[in-house]
């Protein structure tokens, strides 16, 4: 285990950029479309998912030699459900308004495929530190993705950013942006932008084949 700092940093950035759960793997769309009507909601949903993802992956990684592979999925689900319940109580304790805004989607973190996917694909095969870094990177990517959606939808749909009015009282809200179709529009636009940047970035290493291509 003599991974240098840069490698760890790469591992972390992988979740944010090259394997961004939302914009590249297009996973976890249910919360991404449903709760991102405002930046605050999006960010808190992202943080809740971060908590669940990180804690579950750490626990799975610690117990990985103990868990029989025949019942591993059941075990992962029990562990994930535990932390979802914990985060459910935590959010209720922090703010009931936020709890109402996020609604059933807090409980639905348990079926978020990113978390089970990370537990199965990464945490169950790797020791604590790489798991932690990978989980943090993935959740940072997911949180950033949700935030990008929520910020655009809040600015256009309500004319505010974190509740602060940006355009004065006469702003015309784009009603469609806070409705479900708006979520699809904004997600589509972000996917387009991400794909365009990624293509442009990939076009460069092709001319210098020394760069490793996965």
């Amino acid at each position: 285990m003599n991974a240098s700092t840069t490698e760890r940093w790469d591992e972390f950035m992988e979740g944010i950029w090259r394997q961004n759960p939302l914009f590249v793997m297009v996973l976890g769309l249910c919360p991404a479309l449903a709760v991102t009507v405002s930046a605050v909601n999006a960010l808190s949903m992202g943080l809740a998912t971060t908590f669940v993802l990180t804690c579950s992956c750490v626990l799975v990684s610690l117990l990985r030699k103990l868990i029989p592979k025949e019942v591993r999925i059941a075990t992962y689900i029990v562990i994930i459900a535990t932390f979802v319940t914990v985060v459910d109580y935590l959010i209720q304790a922090i703010s009931l308004a936020l709890y109402d805004a996020l609604g059933a989607f807090i409980q639905l973190i348990v079926v978020n495929c990113i978390i089970l996917g990370r537990a199965e694909a990464h945490a169950s095969k790797n020791p604590l530190l790489p798991t932690l870094i990978n989980a943090l990177g993935m959740s940072a990517g997911f949180t950033l993705g949700l935030f990008a959606l929520g910020a655009v939808r809040e600015i256009l749909g309500a004319g505010t950013f974190f509740g602060i009015a940006l355009f004065g009282a006469d702003f015309q809200p784009w009603v469609v942006m806070v409705l479900p179709p708006g979520g699809f529009f904004v997600l589509g636009a972000w996917l387009l932008i991400f794909a365009a940047i990624a293509r442009r970035k990939n076009a460069r290493p092709l001319s210098s084949p020394a760069q490793g291509v996965r």
């Binding site: 103990l66 019942v71 535990t82 914990v86 109580y89 209720q92």
Partner: peptide, 26 residues
């Protein structure tokens, strides 16, 4: 298998109960 699952379930139960107790008043 049952031993491991039971152990993990007990651990998770413990975590949930302590979270419930900890946040109850708030």
């Amino acid at each position: 298998m049952i031993r491991t699952l039971g152990l993990i379930a007990a651990l998770c139960g413990f975590i949930i109960v302590s979270a419930y107790q900890g946040t109850y008043d708030a």
